[in-house]
Amino acid sequence: MAYAYLFKYIIIGDTGVGKSCLLLQFTDKRFQPVHDLTIGVEFGARMITIDGKQIKLQIWDTAGQESFRSITRSYYRGAAGALLVYDITRRDTFNHLTTWLEDARQHSNSNMVIMLIGNKSDLESRREVKKEEGEAFAREHGLIFMETSAKTASNVEEAFINTAKEIYEKIQEGVFDINNEANGIKIGPQHAATNSTLSGSQGGQQAGGGCC
């Protein structure tokens, strides 16, 4: 289980938008249709490969309910990436994005990569938030955007991996201080930092191209 980097993620957003389902789909490749309220925070992990490097993702799936908000805030500081999720069939979850974003920006380190996710894209008939609106919001606030379906697994891998690519790119650019674990990034046990920066710079550009 050797890895080059370890990234910590958090998943945030209103209750019932499918945060736990996204995580389950990503880590276990399955979908659970019954809504099981998350209490506090749940943990999940998976290994991915970017630019030929093994990257371990440790993901904390937070409770969306207001009553847990103060608990979930404790997780912002130590995370390198956040998936901010709303439900395309519920406009209110989209309207709350601003609050979530403020909360995240306030408590996280400034370099945290935030990916905006419009989940439940399989429920096209019940759509209340247009894709363009999500794109516009993301553009306005400098986020990456994607519509996913935890049920059909559409774009789920991409959402997690593209976020990792963005973080990886930032590392190559030297934006992140990889030696400070409080940023939610850790270098693998046997991975020499120097060669990673050298060999990784090209890959970062590649990844960047893929994202945009």
Binding site: G40, I71, S74, Y75, E181
Partner: peptide, 12 residues
């Protein structure tokens, strides 16, 4: 307190 336990774990 499971919530605190998890945060403590999260903080490495």
């Amino acid at each position: 307190n499971a919530a605190i336990q998890k945060i403590v774990a999260f903080e490495n």
